[in-house]
Amino acid sequence: MTPEQLALRDAVRSLLDKHSDVRAAVETPHGHDKDVWARLCDIGVLPIPEQYGGSGAELPETLVVLQELGRTLTPAPLLASMMAARALLEAGNEEACARLLPRIADGAVATLVWPWDNAQTGLDGTARYVLDGDTAEILLATDGTDLYEVDLATVTREHTPAMDQTRRLATVHLDGAETTRLGRWSPRIRDVALAALSAEQVGAAARALELTVEYTKTRVQFGKPIGSFQALKHRMADMHVLVETARSAAEAATDEVSAAVAKVYCSEAFFKVAAEMVQLHGGIAITWEHDAHLYLKRAHGSGQLFGSPREHLDRLSRSTLG
């Protein structure tokens, strides 16, 4: 990372260490910590140009922040808002950008309904698993060809309970919704979404490994810390390899193929690391008081978000064969 990105990482990590409380956040009606989100927006974590009220941060800087949010499982709406902002910029509608992007930069929650889920039917029917869809103040949608702004007063939205309580998902009923066309939909948004989610997964996996190593240094059995046992050292070494190779895959996600590869690999690596975290923590890991179950649930949920690894493998195989 560049010196500027390292400074951003340290600033965000310090902020989250002081103010992020994942357990309190998941119990709030809105499902995310408004104070933390406001502070993040003040730092300028969204990839919005200065001419539209942003800090001028680019996508690599936002990915650094997403890794930090993954580390703490902070339920902030950065993933949803950055995708909406990117879709606006790609559409090239200056009027819409000038009207909506400053609001997003100031902390208004935005989200995007896009057909990554086969159950979705564009602008007709019901969209499921929409990030922050029930609390978003700006709702964009695409039918796969064009990008639209949706009038919130004409849609019905409801929170979708999920195993992963640190991720706010919603069902949005779009039948009869009033929409305004903003421009062309860019297929590159899918690649950006997969790269962003992969970065978040890497951050969470890295923290799961750190917590596991710390625990094995203090948990004593047979008169020794369990981390000194060779069998457990090998398992944690395997976890380390998974985290670092996932990090490499996420950093290389720059196009359609590499973004899909990153989604597949990071999803599977994070799940394996989270599962090992539970195993190596023993009985304490399955208690509500410990965070291990939160990481395992996040791994399961993020593995299915934006398409399962199997779906992307099928897509890659078709593309390669074609």
Rank of each mutant, 00 (worst) to 15 (best):
L6I: 13
R9E: 09
V12E: 00
V12L: 10
R13C: 07
L15C: 09
D21F: 06
V26C: 10
E27G: 08
P29I: 01
D33W: 00
K34G: 11
D35I: 09
V36C: 03
A38H: 10
D42Y: 01
D42I: 06
G44P: 04
I48P: 02
I48N: 03
E50P: 04
S55D: 00
S55A: 14
P60C: 09
T62H: 06
T62Q: 05
L63D: 05
V64C: 11
E68R: 02
L69E: 07
L69W: 02
R71F: 04
A76G: 04
A80G: 07
A85D: 04
R103N: 09
D106T: 08
A108F: 00
V109P: 02
D117N: 14
N118T: 13
G122V: 00
D124E: 15
G125Y: 08
T126N: 09
D132P: 01
D134A: 15
D134S: 15
D134C: 04
A136C: 10
A136F: 01
E137Y: 00
I138Q: 02
G144S: 10
T145S: 15
L147G: 00
Y148C: 01
V150Y: 03
D164F: 05
R168C: 00
R168D: 06
L169W: 05
T171R: 12
T171K: 10
H173G: 02
T179N: 08
L182I: 05
G183V: 00
P187R: 13
R190K: 11
V192M: 10
V192K: 03
E200I: 02
A204L: 09
A206V: 05
E210L: 04
V213D: 14
Y215M: 08
K217Q: 15
R219W: 15
K224L: 15
P225Y: 01
I226E: 12
S228M: 13
Q230A: 12
A231P: 03
R235Y: 02
H240F: 08
V241T: 15
E244R: 12
T245C: 07
T245I: 04
A246F: 04
D255C: 09
A262V: 05
C266A: 13
E268F: 06
E268D: 11
E268I: 08
E268T: 12
E276Y: 10
M277H: 07
V278M: 14
G283F: 02
T287R: 11
E289D: 13
H290F: 11
H290S: 14
D291H: 08
D291F: 07
D291P: 12
H293N: 10
H293E: 14
Y295D: 10
G301V: 10
G301R: 13
G301N: 07
G303W: 02
S308L: 05
L313S: 08
L316C: 08
L316I: 09
S319E: 10
G322M: 06
